[in-house]
Computed example of a mutant assay.
Amino acid sequence: MFDVFGSVKGLLKIDSVCIDNNVFRLHYKATVIVLVAFSLLVTSRQYIGDPIDCIVDEIPPHVMDTYCWIYSTFTVVNRLGGTVGKDMVQPGVASHVEGEDEVKYHKYYQWVCFVLFFQAMLFYVPRYLWKSWEGGRIKMLVLDLNYPIVSDDCKADRKELLVNYFTANLHTQNFYAIRFFICELLNFINVLLQIYFMDFFLDGEFSTYGSDVVRFTEMEPEQREDPMSKVFPKVTKCTFHKYGPSGTVQKFDGLCVLPLNIVNEKIYVFLWFWFVLLTLCTGLSLLYRAVVVISPQVRLYLLRARSRLSPQDQVETIAKKCQIGDWFVLYQLGKNIDPLIYKELIGDLAKKLDGRENV
């Protein structure tokens, strides 16, 4: 199992410099790891076995398996409520009359691993854009001040560089912050589109899949109709046609077992709850961001919380001078610089800004 998931361990690496926030990391780190791991899992035959096994007379098993895997299988819709004990058949695979009984074809299973990997790449797109737009600015400004042990001379020189940078670039960094906010919005749009995409991929079953599973667990045993078996049937039917010796088309009705769907049903239950939680967290994060952009008082409060060791009058002096871009860069630096060094930086910057106003 370690060999299967060993290839995603590189995604767990912690960045030396933080250029985003926890909600952002839920998208490009946690969700990408989950999707890539699931994609690898559904391709690991040593843990699941053959993805499909079909039973039919007169047709070689490997031929039937390959044919049904490529051309899809189906279940009988009005037989999905049956139980093994009552009807002596698996739900959805009872006898049916062609052209009269409604059948549902299942073609998704051969695409699951590719779709999951494609979704993982889409979740990384906002992160890629932000890294490209950010251009290593925060890492350049930190200048190893994220380490508590720095020589006094080196610390003084680097603090002076930071103070000079801020005073020289005051009110010119708004576009830098706006691009980050755009990437946060892209995260929210992406997760919504992903939910709609999976709903389309599973023929409209994903949007209510998780709630249906929860409702199923609360029902009485005799009233239960498993939604997981409806969306991810473990036993399906497959019809194979071939020409007989006289040229007549012969039809062979086979029964197919899909062990892979035992894994698929659990994967998509987890993804339903994960995506709902991710959507809520991202939506709340956007509301928080809107308040931060609109309210200077909120920015002042957040800067006080970040520079809690600094006197409040120094923080207020800086907050009055800063626009949203200046505040954002300074707040990001507070995440990466040692608190004691950050306190000294706030003090030097406040003096510089206050002295420039008095000139």
Rank of each mutant, 00 (worst) to 15 (best):
L26R: 09
N78V: 05
I337S: 07
Y331T: 10
Y108H: 10
R308F: 15
Y342S: 07
T31I: 03
R224M: 09
I138P: 02
N21Q: 10
R304Y: 08
L186N: 08
F328L: 03
V63F: 12
W130P: 01
I324F: 12
I149L: 13
N190F: 08
T66K: 15
Y209M: 03
V32H: 00
V263A: 13
R224P: 00
I149R: 14
W130L: 03
Q90K: 09
F197E: 09
W133S: 03
I19T: 01
G10C: 08
L333R: 00
I149E: 12
K320I: 07
A37Q: 13
Q90E: 07
E225I: 11
N164Q: 14
H96E: 12
A37D: 13
H62I: 07
T208P: 06
Q332Y: 06
K352N: 08
T282N: 03
V84R: 13
D212R: 14
P148N: 12
V329H: 02
E316V: 08
L11C: 01
R25G: 04
V249F: 10
C183K: 05
K351C: 11
D87K: 11
C68W: 06
R224N: 02
G247K: 07
G334H: 01
H171Q: 05
V291I: 15
D53W: 11
F166W: 00
K131I: 06
S95K: 11
Q110C: 13
H96V: 10
Y196Q: 07
Y67T: 00
I337C: 03
T31V: 04
R308H: 15
F188P: 04
A94N: 14
D53A: 10
R356K: 09
N78F: 02
M121Y: 14
P60Q: 13
I262H: 14
V8M: 04
C54G: 02
S246K: 09
L345E: 05
T239Q: 04
Y128H: 12
G210A: 10
F328P: 00
T282E: 01
